[in-house]
Each structure stands twice: as C-alpha cells, then as structure tokens.
Simulated assay, not measured.
Amino acid sequence: MTATLTHIDGIAADEPVYRILLIEDDAADALLVEELLHDTELRFELTTSISLAEARSALATRAVDCILLDLHLPDVSGTDAVTTVRAMAPHTAVIVLTGLSEKQAGSEAMAAGAQDYLVKGKVEAELLRRTVRYAVYRSHTERTAAEAQSARQRAEENARLERGLLPQPLLDTSAVTVTTRYLPGAEQALLGGDFLDVVEGDDGLLHAVVGDVSGHGPDAAALGVCLRIAWRSLVLAGHRGTELLHLMERLLVAERGTQPLFATVSLLALDQKACAATLYLAGHHEPLLTTSEKTLEVAAEHGIALGIDPGHHDWPATIIPLPDAGALTLYTDGLTEGHNGDAVGRLGIEGLLPLINTTPSADPAAHLDSLIRQTRALNAGRHTDDLAVLRLNWGFHPA
C-alpha cells in the first residue's frame, strides 16, 4: 500500500522541498532509504509504493520531482522497469537502486533513460543528497530544453501555416484598404482551419473570402490552406458565386477523406464603381457594415455550409448597397462566441456591436486590435476558438 511521509522541519526555508517517490518492495531496503533521506538534511515528501501498479496510482494523484526505483519489482524488472516508469513520468528524474552483484545494471538503466543509479549498501547520506539534487536539476533542464524546442517547432509550423492561411492581398489598382488579423484559439497553439484572402480580379472587382473549417489542429488547418489556395486560383480563373462555391465544396469533399469536416464560407465581391457588394453566405454569419454613423450587421440570405449536403448548391446572392465611405468586416465566430464577462453568457453580435461603436475607428488596424483585446479580456480564456478578421475600408475612414 502506498504511504507518504513529509520531512521539512528544522531545515533552511530556502531549501526546496523534493517530492520523492520510492518504488521498492523490500521493506528493509525502503526503511534504509527513508533513514538516509533524513540524514541528507533535504526537505522532502516521500511516497513509497511496493509495485509498479501502486506507483502508477501514486503518479496519477500527485506531482513528483524524483523517483527512486528498485529494478526488481513484483510486476516488472530490469530495464523494462526504467522504460515503463519513464513512460509514466517522462519529465521526472529517475534514480535506479541496484544490488551489489548487478555490475552492469546501473549503466544499462541509464542507457534506458535513468538520470543516475545508486548501489544499495554503498550509499551514504551525502552521496544520496548530491545525486537527488543533480538528477532533479538535470531533469528540469532537459524539460526546459524540450519545451523550448517544442515552442520553436510550433512557431515554425505557425509561420508555414500563416503563409497558406493568411496570404498577402493581391491588389493592383484598388483604393480599398485591407486589414487582417488572425489568432489561434489557445496560447501557443497551432493555427486552426480559419482562412481569409483578398484578390482584385480582371473584372475590376475586389473579391474577398473568409472561411472556417470545423474542428481544430493540423487536419483543419491543412484543409483551410487547401480551400484558400483553391479560392484564389478559381477567382483568378474567372469563377464566381454559386459556381465557385460548388467547386470549393467538391475540393473539400475530396480532401477531407473519411473525416466529417465541413466549412462555413463568406464570399464577397466589392464593386467600387457601382458602390455595391455581392455577398454569398455558405453557413457563415453576416458581415458588418460601418458607415459614418455606426456599425450594423448586414441583412443577408443564407445557404448551407460546404460539405454538409454535397450537391445541394443553394447559395443565394445578397446585393449590399455601399456608402461612398465606409468599411465591411468579415470574421469567424471566434470573435463573438467568447464569453461576455460572466461564466454563462456569450458575447454574440448583440455584445459585439456596442464594443465596435464605442471603439475609436479612425485607424482600421488600431480599431481591430482594440476590439480583439476587449473581447478576449471579457472572455478571460474560457472559449478557445480561432479568430480571423478581414476588414475592407474605402473612401474616407469613418469618424
């Protein structure tokens, strides 16, 4: 049965408390280790388990800095004990306890992943003290290095995904100002399946897309990149409206394989000469129209998301009259589905519009940054959806 002992009294307060798990089925050897730990003058919490099964339960309920491991347990022995314990606690220091006759066991244990080894019967308090402190320090250093490497890899992967999900707008003569923002749903997370793009076509119209692939992680991101690249290629090839959405849906179905992924999409074609925009919504919510007076949600017709019912092809167009100066904002639901400051209610469009209309908007980039900061502060990390925002400004910036 697992037992826990705490020893911190009478030792300098600046000495760390080492949480130690001893896995030893021999009661006499376990008592010897306990007495040696007292003599080391370490501050420690000692938990003792007599089998690997007990140790597994102990590790599931408490954090451990160091494991003292006997190589001969009722349910595992030898280097298998080391590899099993390392798998159970990959970031915890492991010190193996070997017998006097096991000359090769210590080196083999270290090759299997242990930080160090001690020979029973030859361990003194000072040696145990140094070994525990060094093994824990080395384990922490290895963990920090691994986390730093993981962070670098995430940053590199995000950079590659950004190039696919967030391309540079392809503009020639357009006077429209394009502002974009993209944030993953969780800190240090990979970008998800949200995507956006802006292209000026040979027809003189400014074409924009914002989309959101269901789910999170690399599969959603890969499909988002695929749809974004396909959209740009199809627009430049002259495809428009319902035909364009149909082709994107065919590609989605082919690329998602057996995964039940779908995508919501907003397509927008902005005609600056006619002061109008044509909008198609495939399962996506309405964009926002900013005038010199205020920002409102555009009233628009809806169609089904891509991949929900392939071949349905019912995506009605909505014509939006535009003011001489203003802005259109297309976004994914990460902007509105966060909490509104309490633990229950969502922000929603009802909470978003007052924030927009009370946030200075002369500078589109500063306006988006301020808006995102406010929504994230209200959410306080409780909702973790990705966020993509695309804002198109034309004429004079609204006051």
Rank of each mutant, 00 (worst) to 15 (best):
T4H: 04
I8T: 15
A13I: 07
L37R: 10
T40S: 09
F44R: 00
E45L: 03
A58E: 04
A58W: 05
A63C: 02
V64M: 07
C66M: 08
P90K: 05
T92K: 06
T92P: 05
V96Y: 01
V96P: 00
T98Q: 05
K103S: 15
A114T: 07
L118H: 08
V119P: 08
R130E: 12
T131I: 08
R133S: 04
R133E: 13
E156A: 15
E157C: 09
R160M: 15
L161C: 07
L170S: 15
D172V: 10
A175G: 15
T179A: 11
Y182C: 11
Y182D: 09
F195N: 05
F195K: 09
L196Q: 11
V198I: 00
G204S: 06
H207S: 06
A220F: 05
A222Y: 01
L223V: 14
R228K: 11
L236R: 09
G238N: 09
L247W: 05
R250I: 06
L251V: 12
L252H: 08
L252K: 04
L268K: 03
H285P: 01
T290N: 03
I304R: 10
A305R: 02
H312T: 12
A325T: 06
T336D: 03
G338R: 03
V344S: 12
V344K: 13
R346C: 05
E350A: 15
H367F: 14
R382F: 00
R391L: 13
H397K: 04
